[in-house]
Amino acid sequence: MALEIIESCVNCWACLPLCPSRAIHEARPPQFPHFLIDADKCTECVGDFADPQCVAICPIEGAIVDELGVAMNPPGSLTGIPPERWAAAQAEIAAR
């Protein structure tokens, strides 16, 4: 079992020092455009913390997913912006 950081990561560093398994690699563009989790090392923090630490501090909804690709922080869960409100605002901006 392992978590995965996907391309919406903004490289903010918050997760890296928290990982008890030292499983997170910093971004090194161009090969690694964003932070990455070493699936062989990731334990999802089981035995160390109640919550996976990267998930608990990541500020970007959807940037960390589980093995099934499900967002650990789903849309709206961190910003408080309802997804439909977000979509409406984006549509309004695009229409300007």
Partner: peptide
Amino acid sequence: PACNIQCHYCNRKYDCANESRPGVVSEV
């Protein structure tokens, strides 16, 4: 770059050279 809180006036996808406001930068 890292933060330990979220404020409702901040967006962590900071990357805009044309904006002058706190929290925005072009390169870390």
